[in-house]
């Protein structure tokens, strides 16, 4: 089973889900193809692999409907830095999706680095996400790409905006 989850819950009939087939289904384009299609009128999405330079999207971000970053294995954390670059360096404000191996315990970190949607396959993970029982910590020792309040004590601390 594959579902798309955001902080608002499960997304029904998401057009970008990777196992949807059919002629009408829009496709997430790899980086090179996306750069070629940047003049198209139809909305398109991009899927980056971990070795792709996220900064290459700068000239076409305006016309991109969604960016998906791939986690080929839970241990491959390049997507976290790609997400930070997209959000903070390029100022990307559209949908940012994690695809591939998305572990429950990584979702809070992904939210902090700017992801806002998740393609999830693991049943117990889906269950916990639906129940909004995320195993995250609301106190942070560092700024990231999420919206937070200033933490108490020192400039580097942040606290989560609860129910935000």
């Amino acid at each position: 089973m594959t579902v798309i989850w955001t902080q608002n819950g499960i997304v029904e009939n998401d057009p970008w889900v990777s196992d949807v087939t059919g002629a009408d289904a829009p496709k997430l384009l790899p980086l090179a193809e996306a750069l070629e299609h940047s003049q198209d009128n139809a909305p398109f999405g991009v899927v980056l692999q971990p070795a792709d330079d996220a900064r290459a999207l700068a000239p076409i971000l305006e016309s991109v409907a969604i960016v998906a970053l791939t986690f080929p294995a839970f241990s491959d954390g390049r997507g976290f830095s790609q997400a930070m670059l997209l959000r903070q360096r390029l100022g990307y404000t559209g949908e940012l999706r994690a695809v591939g191996t998305v572990l429950l315990d990584q979702v809070p970190l992904m939210l902090r680095t700017g992801f806002d949607s998740f393609e999830v396959h693991h049943a117990p993970t889906i269950e916990r996400l639906v129940e909004k029982r995320l195993p995250g910590i609301d106190l942070h020792y560092q700024p990231a790409a999420d919206k937070t309040d200033a933490g108490t004590g020192y400039s580097w601390r942040r606290t989560a905006i609860l129910n935000g």
């Binding site: 954390g77 902090r112 020192y154």
Partner: peptide
């Protein structure tokens, strides 16, 4: 130590 604790970007190096 504080800054690196549960760092969201650098936990899967």
């Amino acid at each position: 130590r504080q800054w690196s604790s549960v760092h969201p970007e650098f936990s899967f190096l």
